[in-house]
């Protein structure tokens, strides 16, 4: 395992937010001891409910937040250390982000050409004609046309704006994209367009993607491996099919059983499972850790739970 080449390694990452002073001091462990690794050209999905820390994880990796503890390693280089001009440059050259809200994330006073080309200009490209050419090419790639370049964000529909957001992220040719809920603000018929576009770009450019979303069907469809988060912790990591076919952690089971499927027959008989950490775990004697239950299937569990999970999968200890 250790020999395997990862593009992004997240090791024991913590991001705590504090508020108040003295005895009113409150610490929120938004991300607490999260570790995972992403292989080159792989799509890693992070799912969980709102407030579970999935967005904070993404933002801490790209250093919109500073990590409280832990390490992030990108292509062998640590990117979680003190911020320098050089590190900022390295980060923005290699990792780009696509945001959830295509309205808020585009400057209403800039034209599409300025928005998409800004990344190139910041990188010291001075030739305006060259930038324009690249912007046009990029727009074409995301399904827009040259004519769109001179328009402003308000002239576009939600789906088109998200395409602009994707073009802006892709134009600097990053090696990795962090996509934070890229389709959840869009209409159903538009979501499929954007998912297909991301899929095409992924294949064409060999992109590595960290895909953050709460819609499990979309994450399953889009990702190779999936990490499930609950209250700041990663509770289960497995490849998509395994996670859905044989979920081990009780929270994963609860989450899966809550997805409504567009099938009236199964929906009427669906049994939902509840998750209650107090009831489902007994951690009074043993401490849980992240363990590899079977190859490439990690669960956060205590030794006795591990035994039960292994038995369930029919693996000898």
């Amino acid at each position: 395992m250790a020999e395997e080449k990862y593009l992004l390694e997240v090791k024991n990452l913590c991001r705590h937010f504090t508020s108040g002073k003295g005895k009113n001091k409150l610490t929120v462990k938004a991300v607490d001891d999260v570790s995972f690794a992403v292989r080159p050209a792989e799509t890693f999905g992070l799912v969980g409910e709102s407030g579970c820390g999935k967005t904070t994880t993404g933002r801490t990796i790209i250093r919109l937040y500073d990590p409280t503890d832990g390490k992030v390693i990108f292509d062998g280089r640590e990117i979680s250390g003190p911020m320098t001009k050089e590190l900022r440059q390295y980060l923005t050259d290699n990792i780009a982000m696509i945001f959830q809200d295509p309205i808020e994330s585009l400057n209403p006073r800039m034209t599409i050409e300025e928005i998409v080309g800004e990344g190139l200009a910041v990188r010291g490209m001075k030739d305006k004609e060259e930038i324009r050419k690249m912007v046009h090419e990029m727009l074409e790639k995301v399904g827009l046309t040259e004519e769109h370049a001179t328009r402003y964000p308000h002239e576009f529909s939600g789906g088109q704006r998200q395409r602009v957001g994707i073009a802006r992220a892709m134009i600097v040719k990053p090696r990795m994209i962090i996509a934070d809920e890229p389709v959840s603000a869009l209409d159903v018929s538009i979501q499929a367009q954007v998912i297909n576009l991301l899929n095409d770009l992924k294949e064409e450019m060999g992109l590595t993607i960290l895909f953050i979303a709460h819609n499990l069907s979309v994450v399953k469809y889009f990702s190779d491996r999936i990490g499930v988060m609950y209250y700041g912790r990663l509770v289960e990591v497995a490849n998509g099919d395994d996670l859905y076919a044989k979920p081990l952690h009780p929270y994963t089971k609860a989450l899966l059983s809550a997805i409504p499927e567009p099938n009236p027959i199964t929906e009427r008989t669906r049994q939902r499972v509840d998750y209650d950490p107090e009831r489902d775990h007994d951690y009074s004697e043993e401490q849980p850790t992240m363990v590899e239950v079977e190859p490439d299937h990690f669960v956060y569990c205590s030794p006795s739970e591990l035994k039960a999970y292994r038995k369930q999968l029919g693996i000898a200890d």
């Binding site: 789906g159 159903v188 069907s217």
Partner: peptide, 23 residues
């Protein structure tokens, strides 16, 4: 048809049938 086939369900692996254009 388009609505039903444009969203992935848990078993979907094939390419989604997106509805082109906008309303």
């Amino acid at each position: 048809w388009a609505l039903l086939s444009s969203m992935p369900d848990l078993q979907t692996n094939e390419r989604l049938l997106a509805i082109p254009g906008t309303p």
